[in-house]
Design a protein around this nucleic acid. Structure first.
Length: 1087
RNA sequence: AGUCCUAUAGCUCAGUUGGUUAGAGCACUGCUCUGAUAAGGCAGGGGUCGGCAGUUCAAGUCUGCCUGGGACUACCA
């Protein structure tokens, strides 16, 4: 017996199927039964178990899961090793918050040892919740043997990679400008700078400083006479960087101009050089006066000009200085189009200075004070870092000095956004710091090239965003001065005259022993490769004979996760073959926010270390937002609790909703009501279809034990739904294979709702419950069964629980397939011979013609139970008529019309309409199109008939004449006089609505049947119970009974039908103003 | 600031290489069908296709600019 249910309960199905998967090890079997030589490689991007899983994780993991399941069904072996990201700042921060300490306390009030232990505990805090959501949402991933980034084996593999890069000369120590908090005494990561509230609006003193041009050959063109005082003017909002100025940067393509004017403070005449576009920002009414203006000249011409140092406190020792250089970052958005360049305090400045051989001055120390060299400003803080009540703004003093020395053209307050340290609330400086870098720039071209071979979904993320990012790549700053992470395996002598990069524990052991011998130490390799233990290891420099100490940096956690293809297998120390078989990945998927994160680090490491891509296909999914399109955040209180959602609506409805509602890469506006709609419309419909099937199949004992009826021998409608089904298989397969899950889900949904349930089943109901267990009935069961069985497989990747439930419900009875679960079954293959486009076309006609007739009935207020004599169909060609004739019976039954008449000779009966076919004519007629369309629409019936007969028409527009073919026109039907007509595109239907006594009686009979059936239903009779009927006598009823008693009885399973003056049963309205009594009594079965 | 995505009915989304009157589902209203139906059918209201230009005989669709929403990167005088 097929299981029958009281209602659809998706959460209950989840539980049941989950239990089944667990007890029968279905997940394991789905891998183990597949051939290892046919793998589909998937990489799991490791989540951090440091926070609770959110609904967006369900989204991301649904995408991952469904493609893995799909490829499993294609017979591929899809191993999915889980993983955990365990290092990094978020974990350190949460520990610090919990212990109420800051970074400064580490090593003081808490030992590094204790601190790292705490991190290790914290990092898996929500592992249980993660495991739960993984299981409940039906995400199949191997959680028993995950890779964990803090394990020694993982670290060792990462070290190996770093050594590989080191040996290729791609690892170097450099001096760069990084965000730095003088108040906290620490560098800040960009992640820290992106904490909410870090960028704040502040008012600073801005200065337009005047840099005096030295008159030499190069600068000659700027001078009109010997004594002219030519100054390049540059704007800054950080006057404290002016003493460290060593260059001025202009844009080579920007146009500049020289303005003769008067300094507003000193009233001295001088000539200002600035961008032509920005002249009006500084000169004009109520601003400085323009005495004269030179011709424009390009920035390129200014290049190489020297100027006098603005505040000559110190001289740079590491390069040239006080020259005009060019840089691509210069804009004319604000300022003067000339950038004051202090290489120590700006990343752009440093970059452009280096490229031009310009040296730097660093007249501010790490506490944020001017150094002793800075003249009268020495030892003063550049910002109020100490909350000193007597703090005097040094920017203002600098501005005053410049004004007095005729070096300031403009001083004013300026409001702008400036980053602040999230911990101390003090402004950040950009400061030169030592860091280790990976020279990704050296491999840039190769990365771009390899990226072209990756299939990105959506393509724009790969071609646009990612390529763009690669092309503007900077070297990868690997250093983090933190505690909980993978230590950089580089040892150096104090003088930096020798260094060593360690690539394995074995190598470290050897080097340690060597050092022990040479330096007379008793150290051993620590059992935990983290800080602080690893810091204690001292190595020996053979070259210099000196001890070497580890560089204290940790590496960026993104390197951790980007190393997972290798480190998850402890490559190359173990599993070398395993790694080779699993690299690169066929498929990865994460949020689009990982484009520059994990997607990049995977790609970069694979390119640099192995000259390979790391993944072939990548799906980057968008954000999950709330129903108003806002970002979900705890602060707004609009987060969706994934556990609750899944518990209430079931995993499948949640998954289906997420996949079908929006493309994965579009942002999803998550609306809980949408899940409910999916449950009702899709799962509800599918459930009802199954219930209907189960109800009658159980009665008839259908178990698919009869031989399969060949499709060609099945009735039209069966061949139609099977054709549709096979078309669907092709479509869904292509969509899944193309990583387009949304289209796949929508196609399945559309099939189930509009075709299977609301056309096939609805039209075929009688075949299931009417009559004996005939060949036709068996065929109907087989057809419906095959549809459902296939749908179960098609939907399995997205809705794994319901699919398995449905599959098992069907197959445990029929045993027609011997798979234990739908997830062990193979994906359906289409039977291409079953696909019949002309059949699909004519059924489409049937559906549309039915709609049109129902529409006329509605307009004329004639209920569908009232039979009508005939419908009239004007036909354009034979093919159309043949198509409709084939489905005529279906239409007649559906709309309760007794016959069809095709009208071919329409002259005089039907008027036609004509329109221009814009598609074919537009290109030919061009400008005359509009006139032609007007003329054609005016054609009379005679002209139309002429065109139909002659198959061409000569149209004259102005002096041109065009010969138009029949295809250049679109001919349709207009009204048919005296008939009720409805049209839909190329279809037109007319309906004869005259009634006679027979028709009326039959209509009455059908109404009676309906009322009786309703009574059967409400009085809870079984569908097989037989009844006797007593009707209250009534003229209309009597006529109907006279003619249709047998019909009524057979439809309602009645043994007898009698009329009486009065009956005990219900009183029902048969039609308007006619109320009769109907009594329905079950016939008790006699044993 | 740059790069990218996005904007179509109250809501969620379709809309082919530009082509005639821009569609579906949900929600709302009325009617209707039904011995599978928390369903279906028919009809109705609801759209300056974000705005402005341009290309074209023809623009929801192509181009440019602008605006709103989002993501990432950067923070720059």
């Amino acid at each position: 017996m097929y299981k029958e249910f009281k209602g659809l309960n998706l959460p209950e199905i989840d539980k049941e199927i989950l239990q089944f998967w667990k007890s029968e090890n279905i997940f394991e079997k789905s891998i183990d039964t597949k051939d290892a030589s046919n793998p589909y490689v998937f990489y799991e991007g490791p989540p951090s178990a440091n926070g609770m899983p959110g609904i967006h994780h369900v989204m991301a993991r649904t995408v991952k899961d469904l493609f893995c399941r799909f490829h499993t069904m294609l017979g591929q072996r899809v191993e999915r090793k889980g993983g955990w990201d365990t290092h990094g700042l978020p974990i350190e921060l949460s520990v610090e918050k919990e212990l109420s300490i800051t970074k400064e306390d580490i090593g003081k009030s808490i030992s590094v040892d204790e601190y790292n232990h705490k991190c290790r505990e914290t990092v898996m805090r929500y592992k249980k919740e993660w495991d739960n959501i993984t299981e409940q949402m039906g995400y199949w991933v191997d959680l028993d043997n995950p890779y964990i980034t803090f394990e020694n084996n993982y670290i060792e593999s990462v070290w190996h990679l770093l050594q590989l890069l080191y040996n290729k000369g791609l690892l170097y120590k450099g001096y760069t400008i990084q965000p730095y908090s003088p108040a906290a005494g620490t560098g800040l990561s960009t992640h820290e700078l992106n904490q909410p509230g870090c960028y704040r609006e502040v008012t600073d003193t801005s200065v337009v400083a005047m840099f005096k041009v030295i008159k030499d050959e190069r600068a000659q063109f700027l001078f009109d006479d010997e004594d002219e005082d030519v100054r390049i003017i540059a704007w800054t909002t950080t006057p404290w960087t002016l003493p460290s100025n060593t260059a001025l940067t202009v844009g080579s393509k920007i146009e500049y101009v020289k303005i003769k004017t008067i300094n507003p403070y000193t009233k001295q005449a001088f000539s200002a050089v600035l961008a032509n576009e920005l002249v009006n920002s500084w000169f004009g009414e109520k601003k400085a006066e323009i005495l004269s203006k030179s011709d424009v000249f390009s920035g390129e011409k200014l290049k190489g000009i020297s100027y006098e140092q603005l505040l000559p406190f110190a001289q740079p020792e590491d390069g040239d200085a006080f020259k005009v250089i060019t840089g691509d970052f210069v804009t004319t958005q604000d300022g003067t189009g000339i950038v004051h360049t202090a290489p120590s305090f700006g990343a752009d400045d440093m970059r452009v200075a280096r490229a031009n051989g310009i040296g730097s001055l660093t007249l501010v120390d790490k506490q944020g004070r001017f150094t002793a060299e800075a003249g009268e400003f020495a030892r003063r803080y550049v910002k109020d870092y100490k909350d000193d009540p007597n703090y005097v703004n040094v920017d203002i003093d600098i501005a005053v000095k410049l004004k007095q020395e005729n070096k300031a053209f403009n001083v004013q307050k300026f409001v702008h956004n400036y980053p602040h340290c999230w911990r101390t609330d003090k402004p950040v400086l950009y400061y030169p710091l030592d860091s280790w870098f990976i020279k990704t720039t050296a491999m840039k071209d190769r990365m771009v090239e390899l990226n072209k071979t990756i299939n990105w979904k959506p393509a724009s993320t790969g071609q646009g965003r990612f390529t763009n990012w690669l092309e503007n790549l900077q070297d990868w700053n690997l250093s983090r001065s933190r505690f909980w992470g993978i230590p950089l395996p580089v040892w150096r002598t104090k003088e930096a005259d020798d260094e060593l990069c360690i690539g394995s524990v074995e190598e470290l052991k050897k080097k340690t022993e060597q050092a022990n011998k040479a330096l007379n130490l008793q150290q051993s390799v620590p059992t935990d490769l983290h800080r602080p233990y690893i810091d204690e290891v001292v190595l020996y420099s053979e070259k210099t004979g000196k001890p070497m100490y580890r560089e204290l940096d940790l590496i960026d956690v993104w390197f951790d996760s980007g190393s997972m293809p290798y480190a998850q297998w402890h490559y190359p120390f173990e599993n070398v073959e395993k790694f080779k078989a699993n690299f690169p990945a066929d498929f990865i998927a994460e949020g689009v926010d990982q484009t520059r994160g994990w997607f990049f680090t995977l790609h970069a490491i694979a390119t640099m270390a192995f000259d390979s891509i790391a993944f072939k296909n990548v799906v980057s999914n968008g954000l999950v937002q709330d129903k108003f399109g806002r970002k979900m955040s705890k602060r707004l209180g609009n987060t969706v609790e994934p556990f609750e959602t899944i518990a209430k609506y079931g995993a499948d409805a949640t998954r289906w909703y997420m996949i079908s509602n929006a493309q994965p890469w579009d942002n999803l506006k998550f609306d809980i009501e949408g899940i409910d709609e999916v449950r009702r419309k899709f799962f509800g419909t599918m459930y009802n279809t199954y219930s209907f099937f189960a109800l009658y199949a159980n009665i008839d004992g259908f178990k698919y034990s009869e031989a399969r009826v060949p499709v060609s021998k099945r009735p039209e409608i069966d061949r139609w739904i099977i054709s549709k089904l096979n078309s669907l298989i092709v479509e869904v397969f292509d969509f899944y294979a193309d990583y387009e899950p949304t289209n796949a889900a929508r196609a399945i949904q559309d099939f189930v709702d509009s075709h299977l349930s609301n056309w096939y089943v609805r039209l075929c109901r009688r075949r299931f419950w009417k009559g004996e267990y005939t060949e036709d009935k068996i065929t109907a069961y087989q057809t419906l069964y095959e549809c459902m069985n296939t749908i179960a497989k098609l939907m399995a990747p997205v809705a794994p629980f319901f699919a398995d439930w449905l599959y098992l419900n069907l197959n445990t009875v029929t045993e027609s397939e011997n798979y234990e679960s739908v997830h062990l079954a193979t994906f359906p293959e289409e039977e291409s011979s079953a696909i019949d486009p002309t059949l699909e076309e004519r059924m489409d006609y049937a559906q549309r013609i039915s709609s049109l007739i129902l529409s006329i009935r509605k307009k004329e207020k004639i209920r569908v139970r009232q039979p009508l004599l005939k419908a009239l169909l004007p036909v354009l060609d034979d093919r159309f008529q043949k198509q409709v004739e084939a489905v005529q019976d279906l239409i007649m039954a559906e709309v309760n019309v007794k016959s069809f008449e095709f009208v071919t000779n329409t002259a005089g009966v039907i008027s036609k309409t004509i329109k221009a076919n814009f598609k074919t004519l537009g290109k030919r007629l061009g400008k005359d199109m509009k006139a032609a369309a007007d003329m054609i629409s005016q054609f009379d019936q005679e002209t139309i008939r002429q065109i139909e007969q002659q198959k061409y028409y000569v149209l004259n527009i102005g002096d041109t004449s065009y010969t138009l073919e029949q295809e250049d026109f679109e001919i349709g039907f207009n009204d048919i006089p005296g008939w009720q007509v409805a049209s839909d595109r190329d279809l037109t239907v007319a309906l004869d609505i005259t009634l006679n006594d027979d028709l009326i009686a039959e209509g009455t009979a059908r109404d009676l049947i309906n009322r009786i059936q309703n009574i059967r239903k409400t009085s809870d009779l079984n569908v097989t119970d037989r009844i006797i009927i007593k009707l209250e006598s009534n003229d209309a009823v009597n006529v109907a009974i006279d003619k249709f008693a047998d019909y009524i009885c057979s439809e309602t399973l009645a043994d007898s039908l009698t009329t009486e003056k009065e009956v005990n049963g219900e009183r029902l309205e048969l039609f308007e103003d006619v109320i009769i009594g109907i009594e329905v009594l079950p016939v008790l079965s006699v044993k």
